[in-house]
Amino acid sequence: MKGILKEEYQVQGMRRSVEAVLVVHEYSHPHILLLQLGVSFYKLPGGELKPGESEEDGIRRLITESLCAENSKRVDWEVVSTLCSWWRPNFDNCLYPYICSHITKPKEQKKVLLIQVPEVYTFVVPRNCKLIAVPLFMLYGNSQTYGPIISSLPVILSQYNFIFHASFAPAEITSQKICLNSEEKSIFLNISYINAIDAIAMFRG
């Protein structure tokens, strides 16, 4: 990666990337959808932005490319808010949620965005990936397994008040209202039981 990032930086400058936080639930406890590659590597859906591409357009494109079937109904993924920004100061694997004053030319900026999920949706994932829903209590403080960005999400999401409207049998879909700091602005996120996610996740060749 170090060599690729160096070559890319020389041509395009700082890399800009985005990742999506998609929230679901099992038994009224929030879970975050992650892509699992191999036995022990986990990542949020997302990736690198194209030159001149906005964060909103980029995350919509990346979610569509990684989680949607080619013939599926087009979804205009709504960006609810930017949860956090992470910086890569050098050509290595370390990212930080801040940038020091002596770093004048960071090599990457990564933004993590909260995305509105449709009430009902069928996710399609590549064959080398597995789509899993991980509860917040398993992510919290567990940077050894999930890395610093994903393990920090429970703290960041604590600013939201999760209100679960209905409780159905497993494998059914319901919805959830989330309010930020008692403000008037509120959003609805899709909430699905893990059994439902397992049932609707298909594989793309």
Rank of each mutant, 00 (worst) to 15 (best):
Y96N: 15
G38Q: 07
I59Q: 05
N90Q: 13
S158E: 15
A69T: 02
S186A: 06
H165S: 11
N71L: 02
Y9S: 13
T104C: 09
S167F: 12
L44P: 11
G46I: 06
S143W: 01
E55D: 14
K6T: 14
K177L: 09
I103C: 12
G147F: 08
K185R: 11
S175W: 09
V39S: 15
G58Q: 10
G141F: 01
L83D: 09
N128H: 06
G147E: 09
I191H: 04
I187M: 09
V125W: 03
L33G: 02
P30M: 10
N195M: 00
V117F: 03
L67K: 08
E19V: 03
V18C: 13
F123A: 05
A20W: 05
L33V: 06
F168H: 04
S54H: 11
L153V: 00
M138H: 12
I32G: 01
Y98T: 10
V155C: 05
I99P: 07
L131M: 09
E8M: 05
L153N: 02
T145K: 11
S167W: 08
P170R: 00
L37D: 03
L95G: 05
L113Q: 07
I132G: 08
C129T: 04
I178P: 01
F137A: 07
S186D: 01
E65V: 10
S72Y: 00
T174K: 05
G13W: 14
V21F: 04
V23A: 01
F41K: 14
G38E: 07
E8C: 05
V18R: 08
C100A: 14
C100F: 08
G141V: 01
V117I: 09
D76C: 06
V120R: 11
T82I: 11
L34D: 06
L136Q: 10
H165N: 14
V112Q: 02
H29F: 04
P106R: 00
A69L: 07
L67A: 13
R88F: 03
L95H: 10
G46H: 07
K185E: 09
G46S: 02
G205Y: 03
K110N: 12
S17Q: 10
K185T: 06
V155L: 13
Y140T: 00
E26Q: 15
G13R: 12
A199N: 01
K111R: 15
I115F: 02
E184V: 00
E26F: 01
K110M: 13
V125H: 05
C129M: 05
S158D: 15
V112G: 01
S85K: 12
H165L: 14
L49N: 04
F168A: 00
I156S: 03
L157W: 13
E55A: 15
